[in-house]
Design a protein around this nucleic acid. Structure first.
Lengths: 121, 121
DNA sequence: GATTATACTGTGCGATACACATTAATGTCA
DNA sequence: TGACATTAATGTGTATCGCACAGTATAATC
């Protein structure tokens, strides 16, 4: 039997899942390598497993949204990713979708004008 | 080979997917049956396949977030769902998470102060 | 009897999560 | 200095989970 905590965790994970790609794309206006992305997002409070990120980056590159390139000159070799042209276009468009969805959600979601007592606080 | 349109479609779908449960929960402060939910969301511009919704409702009930009850008195039998107490709590908490994520996204996402020329407009 | 309202089910696909493996640089301690 | 641990950095393989989609079923209504 799943505890309420576990259920919540699952839902929140689903939430993050949906926006993961958008988040990654939004970070790649400047070139960056996997490890740095993980750290960056960690600072923002979003933890991301490398085993999730690397395949994702490769997928996005395969889809033509990213370009990548090895840098072997600075000590340990790193693979830098950056938005391609298509990636920039997609980022723009998906961002628009996010904002639209966000608008709908704002209308639907409860709260704002307090009053729910559920002891969760 | 995937077209840019298809890729976008996939991403947008992922986006919706992540917030789907939250959306459903937010609609169930008042009791409602599956078919009516589909129609309601359709009006909001969110299309939702019944084959996606019904199993979802059952899952949420199984998790204890919803209560359901048949109504057989009004012509065709309908199964009404409504938030349980746990459901209300979870809705509140996940809503909070959504807003938090939204805040992070606002910081990360591009645009706002225009300047990107990518011909998507 | 056809169409609409309403619910249910089963299978496949796609994507993450997680655990594990790998290489290279750097630091440390005897 | 040489061995060893630690960190930087990337990569892979598998299980799991959840939706999408197509199809099924029933009751009411026209």
């Amino acid at each position: 039997m799943e505890s309420q905590q576990e259920i919540m965790g699952g839902l929140v994970q689903e939430l993050h899942r949906g926006s993961l790609v958008l988040i990654i794309l939004s970070q790649l206006n400047e070139k960056q390598y996997g490890y740095s992305l993980v750290q960056r997002l960690e600072e923002q409070g979003l933890s991301l497993d490398p085993g999730t990120l690397y395949p994702l980056l490769r997928r996005l590159e395969k889809q033509g949204l990213l370009d990548s390139q090895w840098d072997t000159e600075a000590g340990r070799p790193r693979r830098y990713y950056i938005l391609s042209l298509a990636g920039r276009q997609v980022l723009t468009a998906v961002t628009r979708e996010w904002r639209k969805l966000n608008g709908i959600m704002q209308d639907m979601l409860p709260g704002n004008s307090g009053g729910e007592e559920d002891g969760t606080d």
